[in-house]
Amino acid sequence: MSQQTVVQLVFGVMAALSLGGAMGVVMARTVFVSALWLILSFVGVAGLYITLGAGFLAVIQVLVYVGAISVLILFAIMLTEDVMGDEHPNNGQVGLAIILLTPLIFLLGKWGFTANWPVKAAAILPRSGLSVDAATAAALPGALKTGDAFLVPDSVAYLGRVLMTEHFLAFEVVSVVLLVALVGAIVIARD
């Protein structure tokens, strides 16, 4: 048992959580219980982010998906449905969906497994001891300054700088979308 085995074990647990939670979502009879399975699935995905070295995203996943979206879903269920479940939660498309989705997962799996992804020999990113040179700093104005210590990819500060420079348009568009959604949700829900 080495460090690799431990990491792979963690991955296995998290993958099982996310996939098992997802199965629970589509199998549960009661909407409320399937929302609870959904939360388990979200937590599993957050764990996958941690194994990928994206700690910030893992935290955001828990904050937004578990703390906000799931709670919103639970809230909507409580406000609308009676607490007992539905004996027939599915429509008549189960057979059709299975016929369609079996080839889909097969193709996705085959593609993911066989495609020749240009994986970098390690995808292990240098962690420290480097500093940014002038050319790089010039290429990313504002994001990095000459002489900056190397910023590890998990760095929140680095993600923030990139969001505010390279991906500024996306950032602004998302802000506007969020504002519109906020106003829209209030207008719609206020009969």
Partner: peptide, 19 residues
């Protein structure tokens, strides 16, 4: 891929809008 397929299955077969 598994998550996506399961999610798509749920979106296709459920009667309930929240599901």
């Amino acid at each position: 891929a598994g998550l996506f397929t399961i999610g798509l299955y749920g979106a296709l077969v459920r009667k309930n809008a929240v599901s």
